[in-house]
Nucleic acid binder design. Structure first.
Lengths: 188, 188
DNA sequence: ATTAGGCTGTACCGAATAGTACAAGTTGTA
DNA sequence: TACAACTTGTACTATTCGGTACAGCCTAAT
C-alpha cells in the first residue's frame, strides 16, 4: 500500500480543482478519488462527513483566501484608488487561474444550495460590504456606495458566466478592466 | 391507467420548473416524474433520448421566448430608449417569475457544459449582439456598444447570482433598475 | 527496535441511478 | 362499434451512487 505524503490542505486544493471542473453534483466519489488522486480511505479519513465535508472545506479555503487577499485589504486601505486597482488585479488573477469559476456562485444552484446558503450569503455580503465601505470613504454617499459595490461584484460574476459560455478568457479580462475604470472614475 | 391530456409543450414547461428548482444534475428521473407529475413512460415517449433530450427541449423553449420577447424587439426597435426600457421590463418580469434562475447560465457548469455549449454560447452572443446593435444605433460607437451590451448582460446574470445568495428579490430589481438607467444615460 | 497512531487500498453495503420493455389504457376516426 | 395510433403505469435491468469497515502500511517519537 503506497503512501503519499498528504496534508489535508493539499487534499482540499485537489478537491477544489475537481469541484471547479465538474461541479459539486457531478463529482462522484469515484471521480473524485480518480481526479484528485486520493483514495476513498484517505478522503473519509480527512473528511468524515463525506462529500458535504469536502465541499465545506473547499469553500472555507476559498473564503479565507478572499478574506486575506481581497476583503481585508479593501477595509484597511489608505488610498481608495490603489485599493480598487489591487482588488481588480487580485480577483482577475484569481479567476483566470481558476478556470473562470466561482465556487460560491456555483453553490447557489442545485440540491446543495440550502446546505451552503449561509456561507454563500456571507461571502457575497462581505465582498459587497468591504467594497462599499471603500467607495464611501472614497467620496460616495452610503447608498451609492452600496449600489455600485453590488453592481461591481455582479458584473464580475456575470462576466465569469459569459466568459465560460464564450470559452474566451479575454472576455473576462475586458470586464475586469472596465470594472476597474468605472470604479476609479467614481472616486473623489 | 389514467390519462392526462398532456402536450409536449406542457411537459417542457413542467420540466423547466424542475430543472430551475433543482438544477440539471440533481434532477433524477424519479424526482422529475414526481415533481413534474409525468410518468416515466410519458417522459421517454416525448423525450426518447432521456434527460439530455428533456434539457434540450427546455433550453429551446427558453431560447424561443427570449428570441421573440427580447432579442427581436431589440433588433427591430425604432426608438432606442423605449427598447431599452422594454427589455429591462421583460427580463425583470421573466426572472422574477422564474425564481431568479437563468437555465443557460446554469449550463455553464457541471458535466453538462460540453453537451449544451453551442446553445449556451448562441444565447448569450445573440443577447449581447442585439443589445449592441441597438446601442450603436442609439449613438455609441461599435466598440463601446459591444462593451456596454456585454457588461449589461453580465450585471444581470451576476445580479441573479447575488439575489439567490441573498434570497432577496429586491436585490435583483435594484440591479435591473440601475441597468436601465445606465443604458438610457448612454443613449443619444 | 519497538510501538502507537496517522494514513490508505480494497471489498463491500443498501439505495438510487438512467434507461428499456411492454401490456393496458385512452382517444379520434370511421 | 371497431380499429389504429397515441399515451402511460409498472416492472425490470445493469450500473453507479455515497458511505462503511477494516486490515495493513508507513512514519515519528521513544
Amino acid at each position: 500500500m503506497p503512501r503519499t505524503l498528504l496534508e489535508r490542505s493539499d487534499a482540499v486544493h485537489a478537491l477544489a480543482g475537481v469541484f471547479r471542473r465538474r461541479g459539486y453534483e457531478s463529482s462522484s466519489l469515484s471521480v473524485i478519488q480518480q481526479e484528485a488522486g486520493i483514495g476513498r480511505g484517505s478522503l473519509y479519513h480527512f473528511f468524515p462527513d463525506g462529500k458535504t465535508d469536502m465541499a465545506r472545506a473547499v469553500l472555507d479555503q476559498v473564503s479565507d483566501w478572499f478574506e486575506d487577499e481581497v476583503f481585508a485589504p479593501l477595509r484597511s486601505a489608505t488610498d481608495a484608488a490603489d485599493a480598487v486597482s489591487a482588488m481588480t488585479k487580485a480577483v482577475s488573477d484569481y479567476f483566470v487561474s481558476r478556470e473562470n469559476v466561482c465556487l460560491f456562485a456555483a453553490m447557489t444552484l442545485g440540491e446543495e444550495k440550502e446546505t451552503f446558503a449561509g456561507e454563500v450569503k456571507t461571502y457575497f455580503a462581505d465582498w459587497v460590504e468591504a467594497l462599499a465601505v471603500l467607495l464611501h470613504r472614497g467620496g460616495l454617499d452610503l447608498e451609492d456606495a452600496h449600489e455600485n459595490a453590488l453592481d461591481a461584484v455582479a458584473v464580475i460574476q456575470g462576466g465569469l458566466i459569459i466568459t465560460r459560455a464564450y470559452a474566451d478568457e479575454t472576455t473576462f479580462l475586458g470586464v475586469m478592466e472596465r470594472v476597474e475604470r468605472r470604479l476609479l472614475s467614481q472616486l473623489s
